[in-house]
Simulated scan of single mutants.
Amino acid sequence: MDWLNAPRVVGYLRLFAVLNIAMIVWLVATSHGGIDINGYLLGSDFISFWTTGHMLVDHANPYDGAAHILAQRRYYSTEGAYTAFYYPPSFLLFCWPLGWLAYFPALGLWVATTGAFYIAAVRRWWADAGTGVPLWLLFAAFPAVPIVVTHGQTAFLVAGLLGLGAWLVPARPQLAGVLFGLATIKPQFGLLLPLVLLATGEWRVIASAAVTALALALLSAGAFGAEAWTDWLGASERAQTAMAYGQIGYGKMMSPFAALRLLGASMTVSYAVQGAVSLGVAALVLKASWRKAWTPGLAALMLAGAPLATPYVLDYDMVILVFPMLWLAGTGLAGQGLAGPGRAGRFRDWERAALFMAFAAPALARPLALYLHVPIMSLVMLLLFEIVRRRAVATPD
């Protein structure tokens, strides 16, 4: 892997950036009336959040599936196109302001604000990594970024909350807890977080996160009714069914569960393997953090394991991997971790290859899975997690 040197890395990043930007420009330029050349509404998933906001303004129930479908199709309707809403009531507070705006201004505001927040979170990790790559180039080149943009998804927001919170734990524990509490709007990505916080004894973070999550829940109940929480439980059952039986599309999902279902494994086997992966990742994270101080390495390990611990993860959620990748790049360049004093400043070849694959894989994961039935992302995530784990354990506090 010596061919993957600094000049080539910058060259590949520029190539990725040009392709990503060109794709978005082409998608918008070839659209007509907000419908892209493939017949999908621009910001395809955002229509769900925007519809929810309008329903809240009209005092309607967004967890009423039939009502949500009808409200969504008043604005946009095409055969077989519907984006459901499964988020907890705490997320309603983020959707409500969108209901006061027209669709495309709301979409632009959403992508711009959540994207800016994500960049602010990434900046902390990027500055410490010292890779020498401009932040704007890293953002523009990462293949997961245009997937979030074109879907209008929540991934920038959730990844930013977890990534920035994980970075702030040692210096600003209360603020870190607030960010973690806000991240409960997408709870499946925080499954490992309580384990690491408990193992490292970050009690101020735990208390702040608990208070924030509770306050968010109470505020949403007060604003939209306590019954919203019981209605959400019913919607969650529908979400579970949609995920398990492929209504979302196994090729769009990046988990071991989805990979096995795509390959024809039974529901029982797929869930069993996913459960084993989730428990294994949790056990390794717990072992690495037990009675240790919170470090950037442990934070990176937790974030690398987050998308592996849940069966419901899609390609746009891969933006969370930028944090462990930056930490891994920084330790390799500094000659820390497994490289040892005799190989300071160098990666092992398989580490460098894995880092490259983790960066590039989101561009290929969905097409390979959908058209060739070849799921790659869960294997790439497992490899990245193991590399980060080894370096996190070997790197001094």
Rank of each mutant, 00 (worst) to 15 (best):
M1T: 10
R8S: 10
V10N: 12
R14A: 12
F16W: 15
F16S: 01
V18Q: 04
L19G: 08
A22M: 12
M23Y: 15
W26T: 14
A29G: 07
H32Q: 15
H54C: 03
M55C: 06
L56K: 01
Y63L: 08
Y63K: 08
A71R: 13
R74Q: 15
G80W: 09
T83F: 15
A84I: 03
A84N: 14
Y86M: 04
Y87A: 07
S90L: 06
L93A: 15
W96N: 06
A102C: 08
L109E: 02
T113R: 12
T114C: 13
G115W: 00
G115A: 10
A121K: 05
A121Q: 08
T131R: 01
W136F: 10
V145G: 07
I147R: 12
I147K: 14
Q153S: 11
T154R: 01
A155N: 12
L161H: 05
G165T: 07
K186M: 03
F189T: 00
L193A: 08
V196H: 00
L197I: 06
E202F: 01
W203T: 11
R204P: 00
I206D: 11
A210I: 03
A210M: 10
A210Q: 06
T212W: 03
T212N: 07
D231P: 00
L233M: 13
Q240D: 14
M243C: 02
G251L: 03
M254C: 05
L260H: 05
L262S: 05
G264T: 08
G264K: 09
V269N: 05
S270D: 11
S270W: 01
M302R: 02
A306K: 04
Y316V: 02
W327M: 03
L333Q: 05
A339H: 02
G345R: 08
R348W: 10
D349V: 00
D349S: 14
E351R: 05
R352F: 07
A360I: 04
L368G: 06
H373A: 14
V374Y: 13
S378H: 13
L384F: 13
A392Y: 03
A394H: 02
D397G: 02
D397A: 15
